[in-house]
Design a protein around this nucleic acid. Structure first.
Lengths: 245, 245
DNA sequence: GCACCCCGTTACACGTTGTTACAAATCCCT
DNA sequence: AGGGATTTGTAACAACGTGTAACGGGGTGC
């Protein structure tokens, strides 16, 4: 199953950062956005499974945005708001939100509700014919997110293992953004415990990256796609083009 | 669409009466039930669009009921409970509830959430009315649930054994949702006890899946339909189109 | 009873993946 | 630039999960 991609829309950098990090630590791909424009960029740029939408977006109105979204497409929306009065919650549901969470929220509860909405979406959409196969192209490679396959520039199909696939998905979803080993491990749900004190995940991620490189890099010694950010982690260092099939 | 039919499950006559009346005043058909038995009677007796489920049902456990419901059918459930602590809410979402409302609740808010869940269900369920659907198409295959037959893309009829049929039904009913071996075993009522400690069901499910694959996968070595979710179980990894007969 | 089929069990092969150890690369301080 | 410390790459290994052939018990039809 693909890793859920969650769009976090909040204009407060601190909140955005916190939510993004928390979601990434819990096995999802979090895409931060500060404005409606950024949000729409992500929506047109790739698959999005859920939107966490703050209602107070500077001068933009989250409720209006939600109403428009509802009309346009079928992405589930959870409204996050500091306004918790009943009539305000009702407004949220009226514009088509799938859930309404009051700030400040319990992270565990947020996660539970996110999961509930995701599983429901999966349940209901499973019978619906999927609109587009989500495909990505980078450096001549083609990555088919749906079938978990990678095609080399020469047209040779490369089979990736489960972990390698998940790693590639995680990195592709965050191009040019360095991810720490902890973040990657969380997204892959790695439970490494080799060196519990120093490194929460041991060297598992390093080895995994190495294996993936050996499969998709032309010259694994000089990686062009999966670059190392020394002291930090790894980056997907190439532009990705989503491709509609 | 038709007037929504809402099942109100609560053992307190007063609450039940109040909720029923309120829902009826707001354009829905409310079906009261005091016990799980009554609830099931309504479920088998006619269409039900939403269940409002109290968690404290005398000596019955609402959470357990919800979990079972989730496995059996696709009716949305809103849990209603006097227990409003975060961890209790999370339990509710964990058993698959669509929403969780704390008692005492604001009737208007209840209605808003009911509407939200209903509209969502409507959005997705236009195709889902598969209760009576006996035929499914996937990847060129046709599966006739009534006659327990599978027709290959080339039009060749393939006969499945009893177990294989049950397995296929279970998986087809939950496309894109990974099922654990335990879940599958429970659905098929397998009573394996090979390695009682480690594995409740031994390898029976694995072998069964293998046999089914050899019949319906073009290349059983690279399954396209029945995929393995390593460390978890198996998924029906293809879109299914129900076909009304 | 016999032949046949279904199906759970077992055993073994194989792929996947985390761990370890060591080599190589890089950084930093003087 | 030199040298030690830190970080990263990777080969080798071991543990584990999964695929599957083979076996045999139990059921069914004749």
């Amino acid at each position: 199953m693909a890793i859920p991609r969650i769009l976090v829309v909040d204009d407060d950098p601190e909140v955005r950062q916190m939510m993004t990090q928390f979601l990434r630590q819990n096995g999802t791909i979090a895409l931060p956005a500060a404005t409606e424009a950024e949000m729409r960029q992500h929506l047109s740029g790739g698959r999005v499974d859920l939107i966490l939408l703050d209602v107070m977006l500077g001068d933009e109105n989250g409720l209006e945005i939600c109403k428009h979204l509802r009309r346009e497409q079928d992405v589930p929306v959870i409204i996050v708001s500091a306004l918790s009065a009943d009539h305000q919650r009702m407004e949220g549901y009226e514009v088509g939100a799938d859930d309404y969470i009051a700030k400040p929220f319990n992270p565990g509860l947020l996660l539970a509700r996110v999961k509930a909405v995701l599983s429901r979406a999966r349940r209901s959409s499973s019978l619906v014919h999927r609109r587009k196969t989500q495909r990505f192209r980078f450096c001549g490679w083609t990555y088919d997110a749906k079938r978990d396959e990678v095609m080399s520039p020469a047209g040779i199909q490369v089979v990736l293992s489960r972990r390698e696939t998940a790693l590639l998905q995680t990195l592709v979803a965050n191009p040019h953004i360095p991810l720490t080993r902890a973040e990657i491990a969380a997204a892959l749900d790695v439970t490494g415990d080799a060196a519990p004190e120093n490194d929460a995940t041991g060297r598992a991620i390093d080895v995994l990256v190495g294996r993936l490189r050996s499969k998709i890099e032309k010259n694994p010694k000089v990686p062009q796609i999966l670059k190392t950010e020394r002291g930090v982690g790894y980056v997907f260092a190439t532009d990705v083009m989503p491709e509609d099939a």
